[in-house]
């Protein structure tokens, strides 16, 4: 890490790459230090993060129950499988221009784009989890006289949970990407627009500083999700120490 930072610094200081294109590490940090006193930075982070959170919350409420329901109904599973597999290969960002027609440049635009992006991976993962239950566990539960609902709650649900957590991680990460991409491309309020405005003003050091902020935000989100996963799935073998 230190090596990479030294390389970055010496590259721009020795002029191998022009400091106009790539500012030095110290210049970027100076810009960052001044930017953290800028209220606009926080309101922009707030706009991006709140649109992302609302979108992800809606996705969770829709995709997890719907995905789990496919464990109970084979026809529902079959009806959804190819449809979801097909739709998710379409890059959701393609919908952005049409959404601009409908919602204009607004927070709703970002929320809807996040939903369109994040719902498919979570749905796919939850459906896969709901169907990858060990059949012997189900048969054992049946022999013990558990009702269909009890089996769903005590066998299917815990067994699908690790898949769902993976789905949530993927959904949250790509949801954040499009939340930032939206304001980057169409403008409005958000971290993406802030990066573009720094670039537009010719403040390359500030642009890099804001990209670093965005990276830290992404890193924070991923770390938080991994910690949550560890907590929720403490009992599961994939999370046990020694693996």
């Amino acid at each position: 890490m230190a090596l990479a930072l030294t390389a970055w610094q010496s590259l721009s200081m020795t002029g191998v790459v022009s400091p106009r294109d790539v500012p030095s590490f110290t210049a970027t940090m100076r810009a960052l230090a001044s930017d953290v006193q800028n209220a606009e930075l926080y309101t922009s982070i707030g706009h991006s993060v709140s649109a992302w959170l609302i979108g992800i919350a809606i996705v969770l409420v829709v995709a997890v129950p719907l995905g789990l329901l496919t464990a109970l109904s084979r026809p529902l599973y079959e009806a959804m499988l190819f449809t979801v597999e097909g739709v998710r290969t379409i890059p959701s960002i393609a919908a952005l221009p049409v959404l601009v027609f409908i919602y204009g440049i607004s927070p709703q635009l970002t929320v809807v784009l996040v939903i369109f992006t994040a719902v498919w991976p979570l749905l796919i993962q939850t459906m896969a989890g709901a169907h990858d239950v060990d059949p012997i566990s189900i048969q054992t539960a049946q022999v013990y006289g558990l009702s269909r609902f009890q089996i769903f709650r005590q066998v299917t649900l815990p067994s699908a949970l690790p898949y769902t957590m993976t789905g949530i991680k993927i959904a949250a990460n790509i949801g954040l990407i499009v939340a930032i991409a939206a304001s980057l491309i169409v403008g409005g309020e958000g971290l993406g627009a802030l990066i573009v405005s720094a670039a537009g003003a010719g403040r390359v050091d500030l642009m890099y500083a804001r990209i670093v902020v965005t990276g830290l935000l992404g890193l924070g989100v991923s770390t938080l999700l991994v910690l949550t996963e560890r907590r929720i799935l403490r009992w599961h073998s994939s999370q046990r120490i020694g693996r």
């Binding site: 890490m1 090596l3 991409a181 990066i195 990276g215 890193l219 991923s222």
Partner: peptide, 25 residues
């Protein structure tokens, strides 16, 4: 171990955020 901080950071970086870098470069 040596590369971990760098790969973790770059991986979490929302791709969209870096678009202006190659655009400028």
């Amino acid at each position: 171990r040596d590369a971990l901080p760098l790969t973790e950071f770059s991986r979490s970086l929302p791709v969209a955020a870096i678009v202006p870098i190659p655009l400028l470069a």
